[in-house]
C-alpha cells in the first residue's frame, strides 16, 4: 500500500498531519503498537524538519507485510554538513521555532533511533532526501 502526503514549509498548524494519518492506517492494519509508535515518531520528526527548514516537500509511505518504508523529499536549503546535523543537540532552527519547543537538535537522532534502516542525503541549495524503514516482523 502506498500513500503520499504534501508537507508545506512554515505551516506548523498542519505539521503532524501525515504522521496522524499513517498512525490511523497502521492501527487499522493491526500493527503492533510499539512499532506504530516508532514509525509515527520518526515520521513526525521528519515532517517537522521540512516544516521548520524547507520550502515544501513530500512524504511517501510504502507499507507491506514486512516493513514500512518512508521517503521524504524536500525543496529547501539542504544540509551542508550531515554528520554535524546528525549530532544530538545541533540545530540551525530559528529562535521562533525554538520558542515553540522545536529545534532542540533531537529530530534526526530521534528518526535514526526509531528506525531499522536510515539514510539521508542532501544538496545545498536544492533539498534533502531522507529515507527510513521500520521492520514489522520482530528481528
Amino acid at each position: 500500500m502506498k500513500f503520499e502526503y504534501k508537507v508545506q514549509g512554515g505551516d506548523f498548524v498542519r505539521a503532524g498531519h501525515a504522521s496522524s494519518e499513517v498512525k490511523k492506517i497502521l492501527k487499522q492494519l493491526n500493527v503492533e503498537p510499539s512499532l506504530v509508535k516508532r514509525v509515527v515518531v520518526a515520521l513526525y520528526e521528519a515532517e517537522v524538519n521540512i516544516v521548520a527548514h524547507a520550502y515544501n516537500g513530500m512524504a511517501y509511505v510504502d507499507i507491506d507485510a514486512s516493513r514500512v518504508l518512508v521517503r521524504l523529499d524536500d525543496n529547501g536549503p539542504g544540509i551542508s554538513d550531515i554528520e554535524l546535523a546528525m549530532q544530538p543537540g545541533f540545530s540551525t532552527a530559528s529562535s521562533t521555532v525554538r520558542e515553540m519547543g522545536f529545534g532542540a537538535g533531537m529530530g534526526l537522532p530521534n528518526i535514526k533511533s526509531n528506525s531499522d534502516e536510515f539514510s539521508i542525503s542532501s544538496e545545498v541549495g536544492k533539498g534533502t532526501h531522507l529515507e527510513f524503514v521500520v521492520y514489522l516482523n520482530s528481528k
Binding site: 515518531v41 520528526e45 522545536f102 532542540a104 533531537m106
Partner: peptide, 9 residues
C-alpha cells in the same frame, strides 16, 4: 518538558 522532540523521544 517543553521540548517537543524530547517528549516525542
Amino acid at each position: 518538558s517543553d521540548l517537543l522532540s524530547d517528549v516525542m523521544g
